[in-house]
Design a binder for these strands. Structure first.
Lengths: 105, 105
DNA sequence: ACAAAGTACTTTGCATTGCGATATAGTGAT
DNA sequence: ATCACTATATCGCAATGCAAAGTACTTTGT
């Protein structure tokens, strides 16, 4: 899969999933994996960037199986960014599709 | 504009424009600029990569105004790559849109 | 004659980021 | 004991958008 395509959309995808309910890194990887190939090596650094940017917060919860989980929760700022990125994504795909289908000129 | 979104799609866009008729770098920049922000610093290195990969060929034509123009022409291999990238782009946007609109789970 | 603006191509270097690889660590089954 | 699954974190490489700077030709205005 073209890894370059994912740039700029993973942030959007992660924020979107977290906005529908708190979840932890490993869970996020599995959930996003249903739509595109991603690994921990991508998600964990991404979540750290989002947290550093104040778009998400995290809290630790003991797990019944395995090590403690770090849950992520979207912030007000994160929700606003999600809305902005969604709009941007929509407009971008529209633009590209127009360029691809243009028969005229 | 989110420059990360462009990664992986610029190659597709450039191939698509060239496939509809030979054109030169400066022209490409202006044409793609109508849909997304791009500059020569992005397009010229990209065309070099495409040429190195055998997806396009080039030939010089004297210009009535200004320096000679380097025209680009898509190759058979380039047409096949264009078809592959188009399909990939379509499937990718479908996947992301599904993930964004998912209310269930 | 000279400057500015438009056309046109090329190269350098930086910043971003996906991801393979690796380390660490707990639980449960064979 | 060994394997498999769950779970987080970090290192380093490769890819690439793009600002910036350089080269160079033509036209237009002063």
């Amino acid at each position: 899969m073209n890894s370059q395509l994912k740039r700029g959309t993973l942030e959007l995808c992660a924020l979107s999933v977290v906005s529908r309910g708190d979840c932890y890194g490993y869970e996020l990887v599995n959930r996003i994996s249903k739509c595109m190939e991603v690994t921990e090596g991508t998600i964990y650094p991404l979540m750290k960037r989002l947290k550093d940017g104040g778009l998400i917060e995290s809290y630790i919860v003991e797990s019944p199986e395995g090590p403690p989980r770090k849950y992520y929760k979207i912030t007000q700022s994160g929700s606003e960014e999600l809305a902005r990125l969604s709009e941007e994504w929509f407009e971008f795909t529209e633009s590209v599709n127009k360029l691809l289908n243009r028969e005229d000129e």
